[in-house]
Every structure is written in structure tokens, then in C-alpha cells.
Nucleic acid binder design. Structure first.
Lengths: 230, 230, 230, 230
DNA sequence: TATGAATGAGGCTTCATTCAT
DNA sequence: AATGAATGAAGCCTCATTCAT
């Protein structure tokens, strides 16, 4: 009997090891992508950094692109979850909570966020991973219904401008997207007040589209907290 | 003597031909970049499309990257000029004119704008063209002083929130940057109200950071013009 | 005591299982080879199709080539047996029986025959399996003596041309070899009278080298049986 | 004026050099294929042997397979021409001339003929070069009409068996195909009378399908010329 | 004993750049 | 000056074989 248990255990353990290695590959790839040019990251380098053979990578991913898209999917799932939590909070009364959560989530790892943006641009025409990209879009749109409901209510309440509800969340999406670019833009990041800037932008994101009739009461706006640098 | 004149003419004509060809290369590259994946555009294809030999391309540009960066520079100069014009208008009283102009300019050719964004991501680590990239940043920042002046005044007038003036224009930059991404995002562009959406976002860009104390009088906001689609 | 018996049984059973599995591998490999390009058949696929692990394959065969050569050996043994039977019949009076049997045997599974031909071409330079290839040749030549005896007699009787006896059977070999190629040749098999064609060729094989002085009496020749298609 | 001529000359010369190099690649590939296992011939080796860079090969051939198929096409064109000449001769009275020419042509370079056979087996499923393979088949079938005409006449004259005419030439094809295999078969070529054997087989090829009613008068048959070896 | 994850040599192909004409 | 053939480094991926469990 004990042998049976140990056999099952062994299988489970093997599976765990296998999944661990998969994560190792992802982590290695991620580390490399964040350190150097995307073009400079080869499967060989990833394998090296992960401490495994090149061939092993292909036991886990059918093509190099599958590694990239996997990074994207992992990231987007995380973002979608954060947004979902924010929506929940918003439905309990805190009107701006969804946008707030979304901005926070995406600006938490701006480097990673930007990487995902860039990867998306590169994989646009990739013929393998078409399905995974569709999945990516699904994840992004996964909270659309809740968002629309919530926003429709707020529009009804006169808090938000009366435009199609998706205008509101797409504007948010755009602003974060750009904020991330801004963070790393060599044109602008010679300044050293990024954190304050991001807070300012987040605040815009939270209030944009507001009609101005109702104001959230106790927000931490950049207005109140004098930035240290100029 | 006539021969001398004709010689000078010939030289001038040659120079013109040379410059024409340079533009032809740029145009060819652009056309290709907008049509297919960036990775799929080779120097060969560019030369073909430009109707010249591959070797000739290298008489005009030292490396492939120089072509790319040239596209970026041309574009950014144009944007900077539009912004300058907007600032001028703003200084004549129309507070939101700068942002308005900027948004309009960048959303005029969103495909091209997006291309430039993507190229920038790819050239980040390029070791040739370091100087040109620096030039690119300079162009982007070329209107900073005027902007800062203008914004400082508006902040002083209580029209804009009292944050470092660059917060205002960088937020704008971010929003446009994201709006362009939004335009082409496969995740979102299954909707067909892009034009209205962009108008909505532009309006946000023009009014964001406003204190709400003063309103521009005769703006075309989406609020007033009911969008056709939902 | 009963345990001893059961132990011996178990060993026997194990051996049987082992051999069964070996056959399973061969069958799986064969099925794959006949279905797809030889190059497309990997050890992995064979193991999968056989329903066992890849590692297990290597418990039965030291290298992939050993599987291939084993298929060839199995096939050639069968052919040699058929030929032997034909020779026996020929010695009992039916002069063309040997050739007849040989053609029939080889054209019974032309797909398999062709596969073996192709495998032989590929394994020519293989450094493992040198011995097995030698064995293959031995099998092919195993009936040489009987054939030579028989043919020498027929030559003596004036039935066959007076050339070295092996000329006769090698010509036969060549003709079948080519007939198999013909069967599958994309250049020719757009016609749909393969069966008749093969009968025609078989008949040639049976009579070629004949002096014409004596004719077999009751043969099914294509001459008598009008083919249906033209 | 002289410059114009020299310019045209230069272009012509360049084209010639280009074609020469193409032939060099083919020759190098051929040499390698005839020397070692087909699998052992890599594009790198071909380039090396041809004395050019690996990349240059791809200026002449889109894929490796295109080199192989080109070898096949060149060969088949040559064979088809020889056959055509034979048919012409046959139509002038020498009934067996076509078969004779065909056998002679294909056995002239049995090593090359065999190579082409093997290549065909390998390229069967190749997805590039589908068109070239179709061309190959066309070349093979290019003399079908002339052959059929000729054979139909001979059948009408009672010289050949009354079967569909293509039976006759396909039987020939099969026999040569096998004869080539025979030439190099490690199973049989331990003998040293290959030349005589081939003559014997050729003779069979020339007379097979004959009704026996009419005999060609002055043929060099193996019957009359005692082979030297046994 | 059976397994299948791991390995890495080596194949094909691409493409920016050079340079002789 | 214009050309485009030549180059070869470097990338992705395959698969026969090994070996620890």
C-alpha cells in the first residue's frame, strides 16, 4: 500500500518539477527581456539562464513565440484579476475604485507592462499562437460586462458623462498604456519625479469623464501633496 | 562660360536627384512598414519598392537603423511643428489649443504614429544611431519651454491644477500615446466607433488637469454631439 | 514446488510479453512508414503508436536503424521462403514456378516492398547494423544455390539461354524491383490498369531468358486475357 | 560607342558567371551525393565544395530541395532526349532502337540514375518543389505519344503482343529501374560480370513483349557473345 | 523494468552589409 | 555613382539517444 502512495507521490512530484521548470523558463525569459533588447533574447540564452538545455525548452513550448505569449497571458490574467477586485469594490460604493485598482495594477510593474506592450506589437502577425492571442484579448475583455454595468449606473447617476460606457474604460486603458510608455521614455524620464507624475496621471484616470457634479470626498490627489521635485 | 553654368546646374540637379532618391527610400520603407510586420521589412524589399539597387540604399544611409530613425525624426519634426502652432494659438487666448493641436496632429495618421512608437521600442538599444535618437528626444522636448511658460501662466490663473507644468503636457503625451495603441489594439477595435472614441479622448486630453473653475467656451465636446454608435 | 512452476511460467510469460512488444514496435513502425514520409517517422512516434514509452523502444533495439533493418529482414525472410517454395515447385516440373512465386510474393505487398527498397537505400552507409545488412544479403542469396542448380538444368535442356545462371535470376530481381517502383511512380500511376500491367510484367519475368524452343503449357498470360483498359 | 558594347558585354559576362556558379553548385552537390550518403550532404558542404559561401547557394536555389530536384530535372531531360533520338531511329525501321537507346542512356551513368531514383523517393512528400516534380513527370511522359504511335504500329504488325502500348514501355522502364538497382545492390554486386549482365538485361528489354513471330536480324545478343566471367 | 524529460549537435535558412565591376 | 551577387554569423528548431527514478 505504501508503495502505491509513493508511486502516486512520485508522479505528482514529477509533474511539479516539470511545472517548476516551465516557470523557470518563463522567469529566465522575463529576466532577459527586461535586461536587454527583445531582439537580443534567443532561445539559447533563455535556456542557459534557466540552467537547462535548449531542447528542453521545446518540451514546454512549441515555439519561441509561445514563450512570449505565455508571458503576456500570465500578466494579463493578473491585471484582469486586479481589475475585477476593483470593480467589486466600486460596486460597494467607492466609485473610482475600479480605475484606481487598474492603474495601480498596471503601474506596479511598469517595466513588465511595457514589455508586454512591446511583445504584443511584435506578435501581431505571428501565425503560430493565433489562438493564444485570441485568448489574450478575451482576458482583456473579461471584465467588460461588469464594467459596462457599473459605468452605466454611474452615467445614470450623472456622475459620468453620457457616452457609451466603453468610452470610459477604454480611455482609462489608453491613459495607462501611455503612462507606462512615459515612464520609460528616454525623451522624458530625465526627470526624477516619476512617482508623483504617475500619481497625477492616475488621478486623471480616476476622474476623467466625470461630469464634475459629484466629487469623491477623501481622495489622495497630487493637489494636496506638494511634489518634491520640479 | 555656358559650360560652367551647365556644370553648376548639373551639380545642383544631381543633388536634387540624390535627395529625391533619399525620399523615395524613406517612402518605400514607410509604405512597407505600414503594410506588413516590421520584422518582415528587409533592406532588399525597401530597395525594390524604391526602384533602386540595394547597394544604393547604403549610399544614403549607413545602416538599416538609420532609415528607421529617419522616419521617426521626420515624423517627430512634423508633430513638433504642429504643437508649436498650437502653442502659438494658445498664447493668443485659446487655452486648450495646444493640447487640441497636439492630439489632432498625432491622431491624424495613427498608423504612422504607432509605427514610430514601435520603432522607438526596437531602436532603444541600437548602438549606431545613438546620436539620432538623442536628436529625436531633442525634437520632442523642443517645445518644452514654451509649454512650460504657457502652462505656468494657466496654473497661475487657476485654470490648471498646481502641479509642475510638465505634468500637464506629459499626461497629454501619455494619453495620446495610449489612444494610438487603442486605435489599433486587436483587443478593442472590434468596435466601430473609433472616431467618436478618439474625440472623447481628445476632449479629455484638452480638459484634464483643469481645475474646473474656468471652462473653455466654444469647444466641440463629445458631450454635446451625441455619438452615433454605442 | 508450485511456486517454482509458477516462477518458470512467469518467466516464460514475461518473455512472451517482451517478444510481443517487440512485434508491436515493428508493426507500429511499419504502419507509420507506410503512411507518411520516412523522414517524418521518429522514434517518439513509433513508441506512441506502439503504446509504450520511448525509452522502452531502446530496450528492444539499440538504435533506430535496428528497427528499420529488422523490418527489412522480416520482409526478406518471407520473400526468400516464398521463393524457396517456388523453387521446390519448379523442381517438380513447373519450369516457371520459381519466377512466378517470386513475382507474386514481391508484388503481394508492393507498398511494403517499396519501403524496404527505400530503407535499403538509406541504410547503405549506416555504421551500426553493418552485420544485419550482411545478414540481409545472406537471406537474399540463400536460394542462390538451388536457383543455380535449377537454372543450369533448364539451360542444359535448352529452355533458357545459355548465360551464367545468375543472369536469369538477377534479371528477374531487377524486373520486380522496377515493377514495384512503377506501381507507385507518380509519373506513371495516373493510369488505372496497374493489375493488368503487373500481370504483363510478371509474365515477362517468367518467360524472359527463354529460348523460345519450349513453351509452358497452361500459363495465365496477359496474351490470352484481354486487359480491360487501354 | 565602345563603352556601350563593353557595358552589354559586361552584363552578358555577369550572367554567364552567375549561371556558371549555378552549375558549380549542382556539380558540387552531385559529387557529394555520389560519394556519400544523401543524408550526409548538407548545404554547408555543398557550398564548401563549390567554393562559395553558404548564403550564395540561396541566391540560386530557394531551398535545399530545389537543388536536388534540379539534379533530377537535368538528368531526366537528358534521358528524354536520348529516348527521343531512339524513337526517331525506330521509326526509320530499327524496331528495337528506342528501347536500346533508352537502356543505353540510363545505364550510361548508373550511379547518377540511382541517385535520381533515391532523390525521387525522398522528395515525394516535399511541399516546396511540387511544381518541379510535376515538371519531372511531364518530362518523363514527354515521349509517350511517339512511343504509343510506334508501339501501336508494331503491335499491328504482329511484332509485339497485343496489349495496351504503354504496357510495353512501362515494362521497359521497370526493367531499367531495377537494373540500376541491381548494379549497385550490395546483395548482388559481389560478382564481377556486371557489364555482361547489363547487356543481357538490355537485350531482354529490347525483346520483351515480342511475339516471337519476327526476329530482328542483326542484333548483338549476349547469346552470341560468350560472356567472359561466370 | 518502463518511462519520458533532458540533452545538444547540427540542419536549414535569413538578411544586413560589403565590394568589385 | 549604382548595382546586386556574395558573404557568414546567427537564429530557430528537430530528434536520436541517455539516464535517473
Amino acid at each position: 500500500m505504501s508503495s502505491k502512495i509513493s508511486s502516486a507521490d512520485r508522479i505528482r512530484e514529477k509533474k511539479k518539477l516539470f511545472l517548476d521548470r516551465e516557470q523557470k523558463i518563463i522567469d529566465a525569459a522575463l529576466e532577459l527581456f527586461l535586461k536587454e533588447s527583445i531582439d537580443a533574447v534567443t532561445v539559447s540564452k533563455i535556456a542557459s539562464k534557466a540552467g537547462i538545455g535548449k531542447g528542453t525548452v521545446y518540451k514546454h513550448f512549441l515555439t519561441k513565440n509561445e514563450i512570449l505569449v505565455r508571458i503576456m497571458l500570465d500578466y494579463e490574467r493578473n491585471i484582469a484579476d486586479c481589475l475585477a477586485a476593483g470593480i467589486l469594490k466600486a460596486e460597494k460604493g467607492d466609485a473610482g475604485a475600479a480605475a484606481q485598482s487598474y492603474f495601480k495594477a498596471r503601474l506596479a510593474r511598469p517595466d513588465l507592462d511595457r514589455l508586454v506592450q512591446q511583445l504584443e506589437g511584435r506578435l501581431e502577425y505571428a501565425e503560430d499562437i493565433v489562438e493564444q492571442l485570441e485568448e489574450l484579448h478575451k482576458i482583456r475583455r473579461s471584465n467588460e460586462d461588469s464594467l459596462s454595468n457599473m459605468l452605466t449606473k454611474q452615467i445614470g447617476a450623472g456622475v459620468l458623462e453620457d457616452v457609451p460606457p466603453h468610452f470610459h474604460y477604454l480611455a482609462c486603458w489608453a491613459l495607462v498604456q501611455g503612462a507606462v510608455d512615459l515612464w520609460y521614455s528616454r525623451s522624458w524620464n530625465y526627470r526624477h519625479d516619476t512617482a508623483d507624475l504617475m500619481e497625477f496621471i492616475t488621478n486623471i484616470g480616476v476622474t476623467m469623464g466625470n461630469t464634475g457634479q459629484y466629487h469623491p470626498v477623501s481622495k489622495n490627489t497630487t493637489k494636496k501633496k506638494k511634489p518634491k521635485t520640479s
